[in-house]
Amino acid sequence: MSETITETAQYLTFKLEDEVYATDIVQVREVLEYSRVTKVPRTPDYMRGVINLRGRVVPVLDLKLRFGMSRTEQTVNTCVIIVEVNVDGDSMVIGALADSVQEVVEIDSSVIEPPPRIGTRLNTDFIRGMGKRDEQFVIILDIDKVFSSENLDAVKATVGEPGKGAE
């Protein structure tokens, strides 16, 4: 999807702990307040469960757990970002948990740098590039890759293994 970065693109920025992340606005459908999530038993912790999106059952994933950080706790700012991702040729609607949603920004493609090999906590596969905003780094995610089945293979391995308790 990297070829879709043209001159400038709009990004939705959000916070995971105190770092700022961004995702291409094209893939964002809406942002919801965090509400009750129904855990599907015996699935990995980062798969927080499913919610009802106007009659549709949509899975919600904990981005922080996915990135190896701590579990997202519910605060007044906790949000579910509903994104449409393309996984193995299938388009899926998924909710991603974020500590808070910031704003929609325009980032010029010329100031986006390739992901650094070291210095970030997460798998560089997930990162499309590093942007800059008010002298602060913004990690632009490749949201398709975050949810791709290759990277979610862990799910299959963990299902059936003793997991931890539910919500």
């Binding site: 009750r36 129904t38 599907v40 038993p41 015996r42 699935t43 798969m47 469960g49 499913v50 919610i51 009802n52 009659g55 549709r56 059952v57 949509v58 899975p59 996984v87 299938d90 899926m92 998924i94 089945s149 979610l152 799910v155 299959k156 299902v159 059936g160």
Partner: peptide, 24 residues
């Protein structure tokens, strides 16, 4: 309702339904 591809490997759950109060 289907749980979707994300949960296709889950055994013992055939789907989900949305209840009157909106919970799943």
């Amino acid at each position: 309702k289907s749980l979707g591809a994300m949960y296709k490997d889950v055994q013992g759950i055939s789907g989900a339904t949305v209840l009157g109060d909106g919970t799943v």
